[in-house]
């Protein structure tokens, strides 16, 4: 089992995929955090002042904005999760694409060990991307607040709790991606699948579920909702909720639901795909 995990990590680190995705993460998460922090920071300081708002108005609006620092710093997971999933998936589909999966199965013919090793190895792989994402969100987000003249709240314990939870969440997403890759096997299929599901299908499903009282509790179990719960409760969906808040699971529940997705995809991948002949 340990050789298999070591082999998976060497495979992962010996191609350029991980650092390409790390750069994408810095760009997407970091620049989003930077621009959002800058805009919000400016709006609540100079922007308000130049519009002639009094300190009472600013206080009221700031309160209505809620924890916008958390929203910016939470972008590592809320924006970065599909990159983590993609990374886990591509690590597997690259093996099928270049047929190195046959070499792997020759080295370890007990395929369930290979599957387990891939899912376990996804956690440290995910940690690399997670650190990049969290550093980008906190670093460039804080830079945005500084430039706008707002407080950074970097020293707050809530910020560091958020950072830690996001690391865990992104590691789990990499494992979920690994499971998906085992199930889909096709490189193009998994890229399109992850994008369509996370950016299109799931948001629609979630909104539909949130509209009806009877399905609202189910919406908490959708991957993005579980992810928000696991990452500390920041949700972009509060804007579309009639109560202004989103019903989410607790942090441990969120982590367990994400873990369950990873396990379900991995087990399904093993039984439906991995055991087949490699021709």
């Amino acid at each position: 089992m340990i050789p298999a995990i070591q082999s998976e990590l060497r495979k992962f680190l010996s191609t350029k995929m991980w650092w390409v995705l790390a750069i994408v993460t810095v760009g997407y998460v970091g620049l989003s955090a930077l621009s959002t922090a800058w805009a919000l920071g400016w709006l609540l300081t100079d922007g308000m002042a130049s519009a002639g708002a009094g300190s009472e108005d600013v206080g009221m609006i700031t309160a209505a904005m809620g924890d916008y620092h958390g929203m910016v710093y939470g972008m590592a997971a809320s924006l970065g999760y599909f990159i983590a999933a993609m990374m886990g998936a591509l690590a597997v589909t690259a093996e099928y694409r270049h047929n190195t999966i046959a070499v792997t199965f020759l080295a370890e013919p007990r395929r369930w060990i290979v599957v387990l090793a891939k899912v376990v190895a996804a956690l440290p792989m995910g940690l690399i991307l997670a650190v990049v994402a969290v550093v980008s969100a906190l670093g460039l987000g804080a830079l945005g607040f500084v430039v706008a003249g707002d407080a950074t709240h970097l020293g707050d314990s809530s910020t560091w709790r958020l950072a830690g939870l996001q690391l865990v969440t992104l590691m789990l997403w990499t494992a979920i991606g690994t499971g998906l890759g085992l199930l889909v096997r096709s490189q193009v299929g998994v890229i399109i699948g992850v994008l369509v599901f996370t950016l299109l299908l799931e948001p629609i499903l979630r909104m539909i579920f949130m509209i009806f009282e009877s399905t609202r509790s189910i919406s908490r179990f959708l991957p993005s909702a579980a992810s928000e719960a696991a990452a500390g409760g920041e949700s972009a969906y509060s804007l579309v909720s009639d109560t202004g808040t989103v019903d989410l699971l607790s942090v441990p529940q969120g982590i367990l639901v994400l873990l369950a997705y990873g396990v379900v995809f991995g087990v399904a991948g093993y039984f439906l795909r991995v055991r087949r002949d490699v021709a």
Binding site: A4, S14, H98
Partner: peptide, 27 residues
């Protein structure tokens, strides 16, 4: 020892890394 796959390599991986990836399995 098996050499079955004529072309089972990741094109971006170096020759040494290809062997290093298999090395843990055989110590």
């Amino acid at each position: 020892g098996i050499a079955l796959e004529p072309n089972a390599f990741h094109p971006g991986r170096t020759a040494l890394n290809h062997l290093l990836m298999l090395a843990p399995y055989v110590g």
